[in-house]
Write a protein that binds this DNA or RNA. Structure first.
Lengths: 140, 140
DNA sequence: CTTGACCTTCCTATGCTGGGAAGCCCCATC
DNA sequence: GATGGGGCTTCCCAGCATAGGAAGGTCAAG
């Protein structure tokens, strides 16, 4: 017990898979000291970082955001406004995504509503997908 | 004018990028006849298929679903119930995804609400991300 | 010493789309 | 006829975050 967990223990203690821990290291999100035998070694502080990352992922922050959040987290002289700004921007992105999914679901549900759903082949859903030529030029 | 559009025209006429048309062919979603010089050639029917695909993508159907939708579309003896079932399952998936995004946004918004957002470093958002150890074992 | 659990790296896949390079084809214009 | 340019071809790479697996090293217990 020279004070260091192997990746498995760090994983169990943080809820981040060993696979992901290595990945986060590969992309420079975290670092790890190595034992003489090449094994990664983690201290409690490292595990705290991993937990932080997982929590942020649970809140659907992209890894690039997390990189900045970590920097803010470690910077004891940070301004909370910076964090809040990131959070709110992220909230906006999430809500926008949610709204557009909801909108699509909505319109598809309407289509389905008009579909008999019986043994006959007539189906407004397929008819809609088929669509009129529409002369539509540009796609987003 | 032996009756055949090149991929560029098919793209313009369907709203599907040439890149994607080739990709759809590569994954076996569509086919294409070739001219003697190797160029792909598309007829109006092919363009209709591409439009169908694009409409389905606009409704966020995954390509595997589209594969089945295309089969149903072509099958004149299909039962509309099959289509409706797929559509409703997809609607459910979309709404579930939207709801979870919304839920995450919600909780993050609450966190942000309690953050002063000023020059001081105190930030409940970071505090939450830091989190208590929680003894949490398994992650989804 | 063997076994087995753990660790290492490296490659692959997912789902959908875009970007770009290298090279061929064809038509119009000079 | 030669040249230019735009379209076509294929193939590779990128992202996002995660998981799976292969091949091999390491270590502790039996």
């Amino acid at each position: 017990m020279n004070g260091g967990m192997n990746i498995g223990e760090a994983s169990a203690g943080s809820g981040v898979s060993a696979k992901m821990i290595r990945h986060y290291e590969a992309i420079g999100l975290i670092e790890a000291t190595r034992r003489p035998n090449g094994y990664r070694s983690y201290g409690p502080q490292d595990v705290a970082v991993l937990r932080f990352i997982r929590h942020a992922r649970d809140l659907a922050f992209p890894l690039e955001d997390i990189r900045r959040l970590l920097a803010l987290w470690r910077d004891r002289s940070r301004a909370s406004s910076d964090v809040k700004q990131m959070a709110l921007a992220h909230v906006a992105a999430l809500e926008s995504k949610a709204a557009s999914l909801q909108a699509v679901a909505e319109s598809l549900r309407h289509l389905a509503q008009h579909c008999q759903g019986d043994d006959r082949p007539d189906c407004p859903i397929l008819a809609e997908l088929e669509g009129r030529p529409e002369l539509e030029g540009k796609r987003a």
